[in-house]
Nucleic acid binder design. Structure first.
Length: 447
RNA sequence: GUGGCUGUAGCUCAGUUGGUUAGAGCGCCAGAUUGUGGUUCUGGAAGUCGGGGGUUCGAAUCCCCUCAGCCACCCCA
């Protein structure tokens, strides 16, 4: 008697059942389609990288969250924890041959050993797109448009792309003489929406080392967006005086104004785009526009698509300066949100048509009919056992099939077929000789 | 990594101050109905009470450890 091994998955790692995997694949296909429609090309990189590639930035958090080990050849290796660092390494190696601007998308799994929570896992998928090698405002604009198109294509009609520009924040910090504390101050600022002004000020003074006056000044600047309800023009006209005199701050205002106007001219309703001076993003490397995208019906889950512009992507790996801009769709977080919002249709089959194994003398006919339908572009599942029809239909129902194609002895004798619409509970009678075309048409017009 | 809450059948949960063979609904399987799925009726299978250790005559129940989930902190590349 051998002891059974308890089947289980690691903390933060999950199995995906068919009904979870199908919407997941659909989402990936949508992202792929939208990226490609702007000319972004697919790339992939290895799961494992030399540890020094991944730890180049050397922050403690990286170390804590990184999955790392020694391989069989004694090399120190790590699993990628995002797609940006691999892109940086990739760019240092290949962009000279590829030329710029280089537009790529990368849809792949990443790993972080952080504490899992709803919508946060240790293994999850990111769908990044970036434009490397240009500082053009056009790329900032296109990035915004891609985020918009992506969420629309997925089916959302209520979301907000929050936009800010690091130059604006940098200018403000310069004016307040806080440039040396920028990381901690911005990290505190980023929490404003979540913890409120008082705690934000407290963190800025206690953790980041700002004075109370400085902290209040920053928070009041950040508050502008909230007060103006995201009206871009009003926000900019309120903010401009606060950064006047700072070269970077003024440039930030100007860039935001240009971006908002262009995005609107490209046909994006301004209900989807909001200037928000409070978003900062913790990442040190952003230097220009920054994006966060929230679902209006579920803001608490956090940003589902974030990104921004950076001056020097691959500075750790090459002397060539590679500016760029891009964003990342958090696929698993988005799926968790859709699940919670009831937007995920539970279907257990990818096929269109269920073909019961009805008359066991007719196996060859069933196989031929299924083959013809597949050749015509339909997915067909043939039941493997000649069980009772009600069992087979029950199975089809449970799996979520839309159609059943019933052909038994009577149908064969009369040269007919019965196409049953399982959702509508109604049957269509078709002539067997021309079944293929008729079935395809009937299925397609009802799909 | 730190703290709080939770873990009983495939799912959602009940289980009295520790007391005998741990229950329900849904689902599943079979039959009523050997050619028609969401209803109904009948019958059936299914539980190491997350795992390990301890206290006790006796533990799903109390204690410790551990694993997992959720929440908060932390951080979100």
């Amino acid at each position: 008697m051998s002891q059974l091994i308890q089947p289980r998955t690691l903390k933060g790692f999950r199995d995906y059942l068919p009904e979870a995997m199908m919407p997941r694949e659909r989402l990936i296909e949508t992202a792929r389609r939208v990226y490609r429609s702007y000319g972004f090309a697919p790339i992939d990189t290895p799961t494992l990288e030399y540890l020094e590639i991944l730890t180049g930035k050397g922050s403690d958090e990286t170390d804590k969250q990184l999955y790392k080990f020694e391989d069989q050849g004694g090399r120190q290796v790590g699993m990628r924890f995002d797609l940006t660092v691999p892109l940086a390494r990739f760019s240092a190696m290949h962009v000279p041959q590829l030329g710029t601007p280089f537009k790529r998308y990368h849809i792949a799994t990443v790993w972080r050993g952080e504490a899992p929570q709803a919508g946060r896992y240790r293994e999850f998928m990111q769908c990044d797109f970036d434009t490397i090698g240009t500082t053009s405002a056009v790329s900032d604009i296109e990035t915004t448009l891609v985020i918009h198109d992506l969420l629309r294509a997925i089916g959302f009609s209520a979301f907000t792309i929050r936009i800010n520009n690091r130059l604006l924040l940098t200018g403000m910090l310069e004016k307040l003489d806080l440039s040396d504390k920028s990381t901690l101050v911005l990290r505190a600022l980023d929490k404003l929406g979540k913890i409120g002004p008082d705690k934000t000020i407290a963190e800025m003074t206690e953790v980041a080392g700002a004075t109370e006056t400085q902290a209040k000044e920053i928070v009041s600047l950040a508050h502008v967006s909230e007060q103006e309800g995201g009206d871009s023009e009003k926000v900019l006209s309120r903010v401009a005086p606060l950064v006047a005199g700072s070269e970077k701050g003024e440039a930030g205002v100007e860039k935001l104004r240009e971006l908002v106007a262009a995005v609107s001219a490209a046909g994006v309703s301004n209900e989807f785009v909001q200037l928000d001076v409070a978003i900062a993003r913790g990442l040190d490397y952003y230097t220009g526009v920054i994006y966060e995208t929230f679902l209006n019906d579920l803001p608490g889950i956090g940003s589902v698509c974030s990104g921004g512009r950076y001056d020097n992507l691959a500075g750790l790996y090459t002397k060539q300066e590679l500016p760029g801009v891009g964003a990342s769709l958090g696929l698993d977080r988005l799926l968790a949100a859709m699940e919670e919002l009831g937007l995920i249709e539970k279907v257990g089959t990818p096929a269109d048509v269920f073909l019961p194994f009805f008359d066991k003398e007719r196996l060859h006919d069933y196989l031929r009919i299924a083959a013809e339908l597949r050749a015509a572009g339909l997915g067909v599942e043939f039941y493997p056992e000649p069980k009772k029809l009600d069992k087979q239909l029950k199975y089809a129902d449970k799996r979520g099939f839309r159609f059943a194609l019933i052909i038994g002895g009577n149908e064969f004798a009369e040269g007919k077929a019965q196409l049953k619409d399982l959702a509508q509970r109604e049957s269509l009678e078709l002539r067997l000789e021309e079944e293929c075309a008729a079935i395809v048409m009937a299925v397609q017009e009802r799909r």
